[in-house]
């Protein structure tokens, strides 16, 4: 049966929603790490880095991933931290 309402709606299908929710929940399950814990780790990493460099926090990406090939599906902390400039006084 052709469902016009569904055809015109932009809502993703419920199976896509299920898959995405599942993936997200498993990232935390597998890493045994809650979003709160990740937030704490992120905060402390930045605190240390900010002593030495300036960071573009809008492009910051810190997460736990299970999909990194080189880690064989095991959870890995992936951090992409763009540095805008070195802090003064670090080079001497």
């Amino acid at each position: 049966m052709f469902d016009l309402k569904k055809f015109f709606s932009k809502k993703p299908s419920s199976s896509d929603v299920a898959r995405d929710r599942l993936k997200l929940v498993l990232v935390h399950d597998r890493a045994n790490c809650s979003p709160e814990l990740l937030e704490m780790i992120r905060g402390e990493i930045l605190e240390v880095l900010e002593k030495y460099v300036n960071i573009d926090s809008s492009k910051l990406d810190i997460r736990i991933s299970n999909h990194e090939r080189e880690f064989d599906g095991k959870p890995a902390l992936i951090a992409n931290i763009p540095i805008t400039s070195m802090k003064r006084g670090q080079n001497n």
């Binding site: 299908s13 419920s14 199976s15 896509d16 299920a18 898959r19 599942l22 993936k23 498993l26």
Partner: peptide, 13 residues
């Protein structure tokens, strides 16, 4: 209909 995860989804996950 896209209202249930398929085998590929579960196999992948």
């Amino acid at each position: 209909r896209g209202e249930m995860m398929d085998l590929a989804d579960m196999k992948d996950i």
